[in-house]
Design a protein around this nucleic acid. Structure first.
Lengths: 237, 237
DNA sequence: GTATAACATGAGCAATAGCTCGTATTAGTG
DNA sequence: CACTAATACGAGCTATTGCTCATGTTATAC
């Protein structure tokens, strides 16, 4: 399980989210028995299903508890507040993304830049096709969670990986401002793939979008068109 | 003024936004005297300021009215519901974007593709630098307004303009799927510029980001690097 | 001046949300 | 079985929000 931190203090605070938000984004209490671990999963599943079905509007703690078949009380035993529920959901999603990314950059040294770029993009596509609707709601309908430093941390780690990869190949690149290029590239891929989930699902699934994106990014970085052009799919394979 | 449509029926509906949303997104009543026109501006200004300062969280009708120095009643005389306030704010923002775009695509025929691409991108940058914080809140913090067909209409119009421009130059392009290319290009520019407002404001203002983006898009579309390379700024000028 | 329409006010209703806490149930241990 | 800790329950408190409506004020027409 993923509960890194736990047990934030509970500011006695009644009424609906007052001035200062509750406080944690991580689970309040580590479930110890199997029973409660199952409950936590039940709750998270219900939360995801509600978000997908009704959007952030429908996402109320009472509703989540009901759908999960548990009481609100149980929900609040493991999640200090509504936000923490979203937090855990996001953490899981993001972890998936990061795993794939790490695997690819790990052995990028032995392959041409174009291949790595393509692999990264295809990995991003793959990750975005897992429960895409949840992903969409999570990142564009959910009000921006205050002080979610882990999010920035995640983005920083991703950027860092890409940076290491590109710096190692600096001589092969034709961009002047590497820093800016990294920013542009990572953002473009992330946002384009993300946006495509909602607007170009077919092209995402068919791989056409990844193909075009790869071409765009590779040419931008290296200054020359990637080898393959006419035959849309690589010969090998 | 911009009030295209007006005076939607008022479903007697008490309490906080029930199941079926109120109904309109456009002003309820056309202000007729100068006095009320001023009130409307006051309200919109207050709304914008509140959104910028406190985000969507702080955006409540009571607060807006208070900040505007008018009563809630007055607010609801011109805006049928909270959503319509956001609607008008967005409409104004978007109108600005569209004006610039139209002007550029209008006389794109006589200029090289690279120039038009660049002009479009720079225009986008310019538009995003007007009250950037409001722009940000509006498009990423505001819950997605239901049935905001004008938004899709706007995006469609923009895409259409770009399509006409690119189709006229079809022979100069090296992309295979023009439709996909248009999608990719418009989204990339929009999202990259948008994202940069929050994360790369300096590069936006300096023009560096527009420079890089232009290069990336142009090369992608035409298949060959734009004329200028070493000298970062165009010689002429 | 008077009548009428446009405009402005703000106390307060109805609904709903997040969250608590006293109590009941179950699991684990001896 | 007895005892404790973990888990589960859910009625309901409190704050807050979107919005209305009865009433007052100002402008315009005659």
């Amino acid at each position: 399980m993923l509960y890194e931190q736990m047990l934030r203090f509970t500011t006695r605070n009644s009424g609906r989210m007052a001035k200062a938000k509750k406080s944690g984004v991580s689970p309040r209490k580590m479930p110890a028995q199997d029973r409660s671990r199952a409950t936590v999963e039940l709750i998270l599943d219900a939360a995801a299903r509600i978000l997908v079905k009704g959007g952030y509007n429908a996402f109320t703690t009472n509703r989540v508890a009901e759908r999960a078949g548990v009481s609100v009380g149980s929900l609040y035993q493991y999640f200090p507040n509504k936000e923490s529920l979203l937090g855990e959901l996001m953490r899981r999603h993001v972890a998936e993304l990061e795993r794939g990314l790490a695997a690819i950059t790990a052995d990028a040294a032995k392959r041409p830049i174009a291949d790595t770029v393509r692999a990264l993009i295809e990995e991003s596509v793959r990750a975005h096709l897992i429960d895409p609707e949840l992903h969409r709601v999570l990142s564009e309908e959910v009000p921006h969670l205050g002080s979610l430093d882990w999010r920035h941390a995640y983005e920083a780690r991703c950027t860092q990986r890409v940076r290491e990869f590109l710096e190692a190949r600096r001589s092969e690149l034709s961009v002047t401002d590497l820093d800016l290029a990294i920013y542009l590239v990572t953002r473009t891929v992330e946002t384009a793939v993300h946006d495509a989930v909602g607007h170009r699902a077919e092209d995402l699934r068919s791989g056409a979008l990844a193909e075009e994106l790869s071409r765009m990014i590779t040419v931008y970085l290296t200054g020359k068109a990637p080898a393959v052009r006419r035959p849309l799919k690589v010969a090998a394979e």
